[in-house]
Write a protein that binds this DNA or RNA. Structure first.
Lengths: 229, 229
DNA sequence: TTTCAAAAAAATCTCGAGATTTCGTTGACG
DNA sequence: CGTCAACGAAATCTCGAGATTTTTTTGAAA
């Protein structure tokens, strides 16, 4: 493992977990100290994040974590539903026995990992298991470029999850049941069933995140009003 | 324009024009001399190509231009047809008057630029106009993430065009008529017509490229046979 | 109090040199 | 003649320093 590779992985994980706030600057000087790497290494790792859509870059102004907005999230969700439903349809239709096994394994793992960590934060292990489950679900489809795109879009969407204040586990939602439904329908080769389950899974998450965002906007508006009077 | 930005643009153009052969190594030492830049600048520009899918990277082994294969091209084409037909449907449905104007302008430009350059090579201006036309065609759709993905896939596909020995203009194909048909159907808001035209446009190009590839494989097999006897 | 300009601080951009790893070559051995 | 190991060349990886640009701070004037 090369130095730049390691730093890239850590930076990526830290963005996906919300340890770098969306829209915040990624100053090379600050990161040099935080990650214990030279500027050269960082200037090699950061462009890879840009290519993955997790960061942006402007000349003479450095790097930033990708910025979030309700409009972007809605567009992102629309794109994900479009691509992932297609992929899952192909995947369930063409998936082999090995794929079935992988899916069962991924779901079992996801079902056993706790959502919350010791500190009340979202457990990083759950995030990894969740990402793996969704990746494997689509892996029965042989089209590599499309699968890569789906993974890329999911990763950007992950930024929104960790940016939300209220974990999407709440709101009376049974996320484990949703995953179980997708897994079961997939194994049963119930194509319409799995498409429906995945589609709802994605849109429900987005709706909760948008509600969270609007609630936060409302509160900050009230705060501003209270402080200015 | 920063130095790394400039080098990135030149590298990208050189790959898209076939001046760097698919699968060939991109040695930092060699590039340093060729582009007159330091290793630091190159190590910042190259990862951006990786993120765009135009290059690959392996630790301790450096960078390579993306490798090509018939299977990859077929998957790529399938993905493009899937995504671009969706986008063009949305685009033609939702496109504004400004979009119509942009499309007409882009088509006019493309129709006037010659396909071949003075040296008998594919004219770089044509490649740019062609890329612009296809981009504008889909730009009526407001979904930014999907448009970006379509552009990314098209760029990777461009590598295949310049890698082919026989330009896709040949084979009795009237590529200008295809573009005109797409443009006309789009302005007429003939959704099924434009979807059909775009779909055929993409698949025909791929078929010609695959034919070219198989012909080349056949010849090289004969050459090997002749040289070994 | 607000506005504007100049100076200071900080960050980015660029470069070349040294340490480490990989790849090709040569030579000896079976 | 084929295989394997050691040597040498080349490329990658990493780092810190200097030049340029941006941002912030400071202070004076309206």
């Amino acid at each position: 493992m090369t130095r730049a590779e390691e730093i890239y992985q850590r930076l990526r994980a830290d963005i996906l977990n919300g340890r770098h706030e969306p829209g915040s600057r990624l100053r090379v000087e600050a990161l040099k100290e935080k990650y214990g790497a030279s500027s050269g290494v960082l200037r090699e790792a950061l462009p890879r994040l840009v290519g993955q859509g997790l960061a942006t870059f402007a000349p003479q102004q450095g790097f930033r974590v990708v910025t979030v907005s309700p409009e972007h999230l809605e567009e992102l969700t629309e794109a994900r539903v479009f691509i992932e439903t297609h992929l899952v349809r192909e995947s369930v239709t063409a998936g082999t026995i090995e794929w079935e096994s992988d899916l069962l394994a991924a779901h079992h793992h996801l079902a056993r990992v706790p959502f919350f960590g010791d500190a009340g934060e979202i457990n990083e292990g759950w995030l990894n298991a969740h990402a793996r489950f969704h990746r494997v679900l689509l892996e029965g489809c042989p089209n590599r470029p499309l699968r890569d795109i789906a993974t890329q879009l999911r990763e950007v969407a992950e930024v929104y999850r960790c940016w939300a204040r209220t974990p999407t586990e709440h709101s009376g939602r049974d996320i484990a049941a949703e995953h179980k439904a997708m897994c079961d329908r997939a194994i049963e080769r119930d194509v319409p069933g799995v498409v429906e389950a995945l589609s709802r899974h994605i849109t429900i998450t987005t709706r909760l995140l948008l509600d969270d965002y609007r609630r936060r906007e409302e509160e900050s508006r009230q705060d501003r009003g209270a402080s200015s009077t």
